[in-house]
Design a protein around this nucleic acid. Structure first.
Lengths: 343, 343
DNA sequence: TTGTAAGCGTTATCAA
DNA sequence: TTGATAACGCTTACAA
C-alpha cells in the first residue's frame, strides 16, 4: 500500500530542494525548463496531488462551503443543495453537507466542527428545535469569528446576515386566492405550529387572502400540527365530518395525507374538495390526482445563497458589513387537484 | 470582526509558551494546577477551538468520511446517508457528502478532491456513467494511496474492496413470486438498461422467478428504460393495449408512473393489474393505492457501510487485506397495490 | 537557476 | 513546572 506522495519525497528522489519542486510544478520561470519538465514528469508518474489540508492551513482558507439543513431526507432541501453545488463547483468550492436532524444540539455540534477549520462559510436552514429555543449563539459566534453565514428558508429575523427566502405569506395568499377564485368558500388550512417561521407566515398569507374576500376567519378550519411526521390521525380527526370544499396544506406531506384521508371518506378530489400544497416535490407531481402547488424553486434558492456567500468570502472587506435578503419568487403550478370539472 | 483565536495568541496574552497552553488545555499533570486553570478560563472566555485543519495535518488523518452518491435528490441515497451519519457521529467522524450527478467526470473530480486531504476513506455508489464506461482508475488509485473505499448499492465487481449490497436478484424474485402467488400470470417488468448493475440483477431475478413457475420468458413483457427521468412516454407506449395482469418495476418512479398510465387507460389497481415496486420510499408509501414494494433498508446499508469503513480506518494493518461483502436483507412490504379483492 | 527559512496551528519530545 | 524545537505539507520571500 503506497502512501500519498509529497513534495519532500519528489525532492529527495530528484535530489533537488522542496521549493524547487514546488516552483517547477507551478511552471515558475525561475526554474530551468529542464528541471521543470523533469519534475513534472516525475510528479505525474507518481500521481502527485497537492495536499489540500496543508494548503488550507497555509492559506487560511479551505475553499469549502458548509451546508447545514434540518433534514437530508427531504426533497426541498436536496434541491437547494443541488443549486449550491452548481455554483460552488463553478467557483472552485467544495461543499460539505451536514444534517441537524432538526436537533439544536446537532446543529451546534456540526457548525462548530465545520467552523473550526473545515469550512470558510455557511449556508444554513435552522432546525425546528433552534427556532423553538431561540438560541442562536452558535450562529452569532461563527459570524463573529469572521465566517459569513447565509440563512435560507427557515431563517431567523433576529440574526443579521444574508438571507434567501421566499415570500411565504404571499405564496400562501396566492394559493388561497386560487382556491377562492375557483369558487371554494370553506377552505381549511393544514399548517404547522407557529414557532416554525415558514408555517406561521403561510398561515398569515392564508388569513390575509380570506380577509380580502371578506370571509371571516374560522378557527375550526385551522389545524396546527406539531408532529409533522405523524400527521395522519390528526388530519383524519380534523377532516372528519367537516364541511370543507378546499384544503390548503403548507407542505407536501400534509397535502398528500389530506388527499388520502378525504379519499377514504369518500370525497372526490377535486370535485368535492380541491387541494393545494406547498413545495413542488415528487409527491405532488406523481400523486393521482396530481397536486396543484406553490413552487419554492429550491435550486434557485441554493444558487442565490451560494452566490451571496461566495461574494462575501471573496469580496473586499469594505463590503462586509452589508447584508442582503434575496426573495425568490414563488409560483403556482396548476395541476389536477384544483381543476373543477362540474359547477 | 474578530479572528479565530489560536494557541499562540493565548500564549502571548498569558505570557507563557505555546506548548504550556497546549498542555494546560489537555489537563496535563505536567502543568501546575494554577496555570491550567488560568489557561482554561482564558480559552473559554475567548471561545478557543482547536483548528481541525492543523490537527489533520499533524495527525495525517482528517476524521472525516467522504460519501459520493449518484444523486442527492433521491430518497434511497439520503436514507443511506442517514445511516452513515449515525455511525460516523457516534465514532467521532465527520461526513462530507458529494454528488456525482451520475457524471463520471464529476465523480472523479469529487473523489480526487476529497482524496487529497479532506477525507480518510470513502463510501461510494458509482455513477451511471461510470458503470457504462467501466473506468475505475479513480477508485483504484484512491485505494492504492491507502484510503479505504466501501462500495454500496451500485457496486463494481471488478474492484476489490468492501461492499454493501442487497441481493437484488433475490429481491426481484421475491417480488415476482408474490405476484405469481396471488395469481398473476402476465407479469411485465419495467427495468433499466443492463449496464446498470442493480437493474440487470433485478431483471435476472424476475426471469428466475418466472422460470421456476414454468412461465416462458416473453420479450414483449420486458421494457428496459435508459432515460430514467423521462420514462413516462416510454412506459405509456409499452403498456398500451398490452394484456398484463401485473407490473414489476425496479424502482419507485417506474412503479408510480406505471400506476398513473394504467389509471389513465382505465385499468384498476390492483384488481385489473397488480403493481410492485422496488425501494421503499415516500412515493410508494403515500401513493393511492399504496404500493407494495421491496424494501432496501437504506439506513441499514449506510450503517453497515460506515462500520466497514471505520473498521478499516482504525483496524490493524494486518486486517487490511481482507475484504468483506455485506448483503443486507430485503423484504416485501405488503400494501394495497397487490391486494386482489375479487378473483 | 536553485536553495534556505519562516510560517500556517498543533502536538510531542526533550531540555531546562 | 515550563519552554524550545521539530514535524505534518505546502508556499514564498529572500539569499546564494
Amino acid at each position: 500500500m503506497k502512501q500519498k506522495v509529497t513534495l519532500k519525497q519528489i525532492a529527495k528522489e530528484l535530489d533537488v530542494s522542496i521549493s524547487t519542486v514546488s516552483k517547477a510544478l507551478k511552471d515558475s520561470v525561475e526554474i530551468s525548463l529542464d528541471t521543470r519538465q523533469k519534475v513534472k514528469a516525475f510528479a505525474k508518474l507518481y500521481n502527485y496531488k497537492p495536499n489540500n489540508i496543508a494548503l488550507s492551513l497555509k492559506n487560511r482558507k479551505t475553499k469549502t462551503i458548509g451546508v447545514i439543513i434540518p433534514e437530508i431526507v427531504h426533497h426541498f432541501f436536496t434541491t437547494v443543495i443541488g443549486g449550491v453545488e452548481k455554483v460552488a463547483n463553478e467557483k472552485g468550492y467544495n461543499v460539505i453537507i451536514c444534517s441537524s436532524n432538526n436537533s439544536f444540539d446537532k446543529e451546534v455540534i456540526n457548525m462548530e466542527m465545520l467552523a473550526s477549520g473545515s469550512a470558510d462559510g455557511f449556508i444554513l436552514s435552522v432546525a425546528k428545535e433552534t427556532q423553538q429555543k431561540k438560541d442562536y449563539h452558535h450562529i452569532e459566534e461563527t459570524m463573529s469569528q469572521g465566517m459569513p453565514v447565509v440563512l435560507f428558508d427557515r431563517i431567523i429575523d433576529e440574526v443579521v446576515c444574508d438571507k434567501v427566502i421566499i415570500d411565504d405569506a404571499k405564496g400562501a395568499q396566492t394559493a388561497t386566492n386560487h382556491l377562492l377564485s375557483i369558487g371554494c368558500k370553506k377552505i381549511a388550512i393544514l399548517t404547522t405550529v407557529d414557532y416554525i417561521s415558514v408555517g406561521k407566515l403561510r398561515t398569515n398569507g392564508y388569513l390575509r387572502a380570506l380577509r380580502a374576500y371578506d370571509i371571516p376567519e374560522n378557527e375550526e378550519f385551522i389545524l396546527k400540527i406539531e408532529d409533522i411526521d405523524n400527521c395522519e390521525s390528526e388530519i383524519e380527526d380534523f377532516l372528519k365530518n367537516k364541511d370543507v370544499d378546499a384544503v390548503f396544506a403548507v407542505n407536501e406531506l400534509f397535502a398528500v395525507t389530506a388527499a388520502k384521508v378525504l379519499n377514504e371518506q369518500g370525497k372526490k378530489i377535486p370535485d368535492d374538495v380541491a387541494i393545494i400544497g406547498f413545495t413542488d416535490g415528487i409527491l405532488s407531481k406523481h400523486f393521482i390526482p396530481s397536486l396543484t402547488t406553490i413552487s419554492q424553486h429550491g435550486e434557485d434558492m441554493g444558487v442565490r445563497a451560494a452566490k451571496l456567500l461566495i461574494d462575501k468570502l471573496e469580496g473586499d472587506d469594505a463590503l462586509t458589513e452589508e447584508y442582503r435578503t434575496v426573495i425568490i419568487d414563488t409560483n403556482l403550478i396548476h395541476r389536477q387537484s384544483t381543476k373543477k370539472t362540474k359547477e
